[in-house]
């Protein structure tokens, strides 16, 4: 059974990460920015799993589980912030929150 070269898996992770980066930079809707951050986290986890699979060790999958827990916490806080932003400014434009309290 021919195996997948390590680089191809890492390149896939890189492509997904770059798309996520472009999404964070391009979109102004804060929900789309959160989704792009999720894509980037997922790509980082993919890189860990690919590397772990190359070395036949479980450490990569363990790291993916930690990334998963972090993504869950991040998205819970992030979506709470989205709701707060929407209640205050009645828009999802991330630029609406550019002024600070001071």
């Amino acid at each position: 059974m021919p195996a997948v070269p390590l680089e191809h898996g890492l390149i896939l992770a890189g492509i997904l990460f770059a798309i996520g980066t472009a999404g964070v930079l391009v979109r102004r809707n804060i929900i789309f920015m959160l989704m792009s951050v999720e894509i980037m986290l997922n790509a980082a986890g993919l890189a860990f799993v690919v590397a772990g699979s190359a070395r036949q060790q479980a450490d990569g999958q363990v790291m993916f589980i930690f990334i998963l827990a972090m993504a869950a916490a991040e998205v819970a806080v992030g979506l709470a912030l989205v709701l707060q932003l929407y209640h205050r400014f009645a828009t999802l434009d991330a630029d609406a929150a550019r002024t600070m309290r001071g």
Partner: peptide, 22 residues
Amino acid sequence: AAILLAELIYVMVRGGGQLAST
């Protein structure tokens, strides 16, 4: 972002040819 991706792919392809096991 595309430039960053190109750099990333360049670094990965230049490395040794290790196989991700199935």
